[in-house]
Write a protein that binds this DNA or RNA. Structure first.
Lengths: 340, 340
DNA sequence: ATTGACATCCGAAACGTTTCGGTATACGAT
DNA sequence: ATCGTATACCGAAACGTTTCGGATGTCAAT
């Protein structure tokens, strides 16, 4: 059978399309008996509103977008799925759907945004992993489209964001290692074009300086945000004439790579070389030894992003919402005992 | 400025909406100069087709759906993000988008499908983690909507699926432990309502029986598909009067939980207790020791699902595609050396 | 002059919904 | 009789696109 429409219900009940629409829409200018009849018929035909048609008419798609580059055959992070889960659950509560869009090349990225925004495909956009002078954000800012960023950027004023205080987080972790008696502390830093790298590096440097400790170039390694990046950096660091006694990685996946290299060399994580991460992804707690790291409430952040977005969609003129979360240090076995 | 439409371009150039549409659509019944002019004007106005309107007219949304229950504040698995990445990249190549839909309760699940399918929100649906007599699949099967399942179910004929041969996979892993000299091999099995549990259990039992080894109830623990499930099961197993010498977990996350418990008890994974997983998620290789597991090419499976789906959408009458992949055993350090 | 073929263009309908601006009826108050 | 008010309903336009079935003009062949 052809799918049910307002028209088919109208024909079956003898009422007009308008009345059917208003009956189903819960308006009060329709007789209770009439509404009953129409509801029954709708039920019988298995009617579901055609969402394209409704969207065309109302100019509302009830959809949010998240654009993610799935570079190579690997997703960035478990981090990511937590974030999406947060976005998704909060969206579902408001009966919004989530459109996950993948540019098939980095060059394609801005086009994808244009297609979404100018094509009125979605009501709002979530952004993750903001970059310096982020072109995506600059484009969005000159648009009517509501958007919320997880992270901060430069060169754009008055946009909605939520971020974790990277300075505070990295500083807390650094201080933790200093308190344990470490002097040669290495930092395996994420790529510099990512905005949070800047803040975390600042947290690290400042804290070291305050403690009167040197940060030699040797002990600062830039690497990819995954296990492999961590492993490579750890190899380099452990091959130094004077290797570090503590290694902080840019995120937990990198920390995992660092730990593996340490263990493969017959050294013990914690006692021989202390390790720290960032993110507190679910497995961080379940590794052996447990990973000392900086907790980001990623799922909750995802939910918040959706909520801000929804609020923004409902109130386009609301002032920009900005939220900075102070993260919590999670001390586990990988940072080891007090040193003598 | 109001957003550009065919009408606004038509007005600006003096041509009709029809001609503008056909010029932009690349039809050959429009003069080259005219097309040039129209393209320029479209460019100038920053025209992007309104996708709702197009979808309404063409009855094509250029969108695929994946419905996932994000039960609790945790995503099921890294497994998941790999799969989504595969789906997404293959979809992007065909200029399709991916709609990620979250029921906000399990009871809501079927309603979500009805909304998507009857509401003509998407052109095709991907399903993951099929269950016994899966109600979602039964619903979809009586619909026109193209769908592809990762996994198999019972009670439905002639549907598109792609699956990994769980019998062969679990059998290979079991045989590997038998070959290493293990006799008391435990299996931490996933929940029984998931279809793949059935196959894997069968692979395990048959292989044990063939080798003349007993499978006592003690050594068969049902647990949740995450670290916690693995940990709990491992506690129980290691507390047995006669604990197993090898533990196979239902997936890699569970194996991670198992490994942690072993290590916390001061035992060594591999030499004291051998451990195996299933999935080969990215971190399996980067754990210490590396996890012996059964590799599922999840990313590629995601791509395949999309491809089958797209083919199905283009050829609604094509016979059902069914694909069974024989997975590969990845032997790493966690299974340990030959026993004497 | 007529025909046919071709190139170029366009009007109007359709997709399914929402909503504005009504109309018709009934009924109590004036 | 007229007015006002409420109740219940509906026609038609609109959202922006695609496409069917022409229309018009040109030009070479008859």
């Amino acid at each position: 059978m052809a799918s049910a429409t307002l028209k088919s219900i109208a024909k079956a009940t003898g009422y007009s399309v308008t009345t059917v629409s208003r009956a189903l829409g819960g308006f009060d200018d329709v007789n209770v008996d009439t509404r009953q009849l129409i509801l029954q018929e709708a039920q019988r035909q298995g009617y579901e509103p055609n969402l394209q048609a409704r969207a065309l008419q109302t100019q509302r798609t009830q959809t949010l977008a998240l654009v993610v580059s799935m570079s190579g055959p690997r997703f960035p992070d478990p981090f990511f799925s937590e974030f999406v889960a947060g976005l998704g659950t909060a969206a579902a509560e408001a009966r919004f759907d989530l459109l996950l869009v993948t540019p098939n090349s980095p060059a394609d990225e801005l086009d994808v945004y244009r297609r979404l925004i100018a094509g009125r495909r979605v009501d709002g956009v979530a952004l993750i992993r903001a970059r310096f002078a982020d072109a995506r954000i600059q484009y969005l800012a000159q648009t009517e489209m509501p958007f919320v960023v997880f992270g901060r950027t430069t060169g754009v004023e008055n946009y909605n964001y939520i971020d974790v205080d990277g300075i505070a987080g990295q500083s807390a972790l650094t201080q933790h290692f200093i308190d344990l008696g470490h002097k040669r502390i290495a930092y395996v830093m994420p790529p510099r074009n990512i905005m949070f790298t800047h803040y975390r590096l600042q947290g690290f440097s400042e804290t070291m300086r305050r403690a009167g400790l040197a940060v030699s170039d040797d002990l600062l390694q830039e690497a990819e945000l995954n296990e492999r990046g961590g492993s490579r950096a750890a190899e380099t660091l452990l091959n130094l004439a004077l290797p570090p006694t503590a290694i902080m990685a840019g995120n937990d996946l990198m920390a995992l790579g660092v730990m593996r290299v340490i263990q493969e060399r017959g050294l013990r994580v914690g006692t021989d070389v202390a390790v720290g991460g960032f993110d507190d992804i679910p497995i961080a707690e379940h590794m052996h030894p447990g990973l000392t790291t900086v907790h980001q409430p990623i799922f909750e952040i995802g939910q918040q992003v959706t909520r801000i977005l929804l609020h923004r969609i409902a109130n386009p003129e609301a002032p920009a919402a900005t939220r900075l979360i102070t993260p919590q240090l999670m001390v586990r076995a990988s940072s080891g005992p007090q040193r003598l």
